[in-house]
Design a protein around this nucleic acid. Structure first.
Lengths: 213, 213, 213, 213
DNA sequence: TCATAAGCGAGACGGTACGTCCCGTCTTTAT
DNA sequence: ATAAAGACGGGACGTACCGTCTCGCTTATGA
């Protein structure tokens, strides 16, 4: 009886959805996440507040979806399966046979993306929201991050198969060895993100810190 | 810069300051950061709102200071120099001569701290606030994070001196090789934080992912 | 004139309006005007503060309207023209042909009203507010006072026509000869308001202070 | 024991008192009564807030005293008895033998005073405060108004003695016949205050409204 | 085919919190 | 001891948004 009244998605206004995405992304980059309000999004989108509340449970949810849409639009569409959106950085993880080169390529792309002004605001906002709110965090992880991280794992497993990586290592932990430091530096703004930095990161992680015999 | 009427710090009520710290930390752990309000802190501390606004510019600033105080109080006071507060995890970085063991010790301590229910709430809140607000982030970094990170650097340099680490590596980047993945996992809640995880992390980072010859 | 976003009066909640009237009047009589706050009215009326600020510019405006409503409700409705609200004291000014008797009747009624505990508080409050704030004063005058005063003028003109009053006198000034002293005594609390007092007032004003030849 | 701690008036700073008077009067005329605050007076007077609270119970009390001082200073000092301050309008009520002329003179002076920009603000403020707060009203009446009204009474009694006024009339009610309409017009801003107006007022009151036989 | 029910723009509503202004009290330092 | 200064606990201000609700309007079926 207390059904939450799921609205009819068929009748949904595509025009409104788009306008809301645009408004949300624009506001976040312009005035920041906390000063972005649902009322503000609605006003800017020329939309009633209820139209937002009808389709999304929270500000974070709106922004997440808007961002997902932005990222999907930016990606070279996969003709075989357009639904197989995989994440911002690595639509497809290269496998040239040279693990080090491939990792460097991908991490450089990640740096470029995190630096892109269109992405920086929303990404920061969503990450922060996810850190504090477990629910948002989970959705953010599953929909946006995990697909990308999974590709690292696959590439590492492939490297293990070809003997380019120690077969005893856990690919998931190894993945975080690359991604963790990058995010750390970006999130906490400790030092600038450069291609040179990620290159060295890859080298350190692959060869270890021990003196090279 | 329009300095706005700095109050007289001599006349400040110590009792109020303490009450505000306590209330802020309690509320953040009880109801979370976003539902912690300045009004709520004031009410719980038995303090006028203005007393908070007089001394802090924002909710985040209150919490940061309260957390700093908590951490300082928890640390084993350094008898030689009690003012030498160094940060939450590593009041003093061990140097037993065994780099790997020392790193594992410190990272295990970090895991314990990030897992401690008294610390988790505030730390998440502050990190998130810092991600979104550059000012807060900078203060958070300088006052809380950097001191700890610096110790890693010193230990690594010491290891380079004794030949336990490659002298060509950049200690700062190397530091992030340990701390980054840890924070990544904790912030994004990808997988549980365990001592076993950090042990392997240290091993991977020191020896690299390449097959061990 | 920077008209600030006029709300849609059609959608206005009648229930809220009534509750606000009631709360305002009750509070003024209970705790006095200065200790009546908008916040208090809102709380007592079970209404958001914004609902008050949306429709009234000030506490005085709320009270004025509430009082106007009270007075209109209390008046014997004029069947011929229910909209012809004329003011508190004299819905219709009697004209029995005996000017002195008519004036005494009306002034006695005024005394009764100014003495009525339901009216005294609001009336004092509004008068005081109007004395200090010209805008409030003007509205108070036009909406509440003037209609009543006008009736005096008409009755006096009628008396001039029948030869009961000197045709050379200015009815407006003459009106104030009755109303002024009454208000003076009531506002400043110099001496108690009684029917006997107003009777003598009428006599003095009609016959003058000169020795009666 | 709960004595309200009456301070030692001998040690009182004359300089502060004066500064407070000046500040209070200035603020009332500049920004109005309600926007005049004790804090504002203190700041403008270069005085601690406590110095005000020590000597006066309320904002109205400060203003009343300040106004009393202003009025006393403006009056032609009575050499016989400098303490015999009698009130704003009528330091001494004229008695030329011509009642009508004397009343006109005094009322014209009252008009001038109520119109004087230095007096208007404070007088309105104090009257309004007194209307709402009975205590303030009583003090205002006794200290400022009554002395003046008493003089009317005396002059009228003198007129009764010389046969210029009906001996049966109550001088107090008769006094209000002049003062009431004047204050009514001034307080409620019904019509402008002019000398012509008060002249006619005197005539009406003395001769009555009846047709002059 | 046409009523009928949905989504929609708009925005009023009961609320919560904001950051500010004062209140009246209290405490500190200087005269 | 009075005074200048101003921190303090507290209450109210007027504003901004929250999330819910109701209002007409339009649009798109399904009886």
């Amino acid at each position: 009886m207390a059904e939450t009244r799921t609205p009819d998605a068929n009748r949904r206004s595509e025009r409104s959805r788009r306008a809301i995405y645009d408004a949300a992304l624009a506001l976040v980059t312009e005035v920041g996440y906390t000063r972005t309000t649902i009322e503000g999004i609605a006003a800017r989108a020329g939309v009633g507040k209820q139209t937002i509340y009808r389709w999304w449970p929270s500000k974070a949810a709106v922004l997440l979806e808007a961002f997902l849409d932005l990222v999907a639009a930016a990606e070279p569409a996969n003709p075989a399966d357009p639904a197989a959106t995989t994440g911002p950085a690595e639509a497809a993880f290269p496998d040239t046979g040279d693990l080090e080169a491939d990792l460097k390529t991908v991490l450089r792309a990640s740096v470029d993306q995190l630096t892109d002004p269109r992405y920086e605001g929303p990404t920061r906002a969503l990450t922060a929201a996810g850190i504090v709110d477990e629910r948002v965090g989970a959705e953010f992880l599953v929909k946006l991050l995990d697909p990308g991280l999974r590709l690292y794992g696959e590439r590492l497993r492939s490297a293990q198969a070809t003997g380019d990586a120690d077969p005893s290592i856990d690919p998931r932990i190894a993945t975080e060895l690359f991604v963790g430091p990058l995010l750390h530096r970006w999130l906490l703004r400790t030092l600038p993100l450069t291609h040179d930095y990620t290159d060295r990161l890859v080298e350190y992680a692959l060869h270890g810190l021990r003196p090279r015999g």
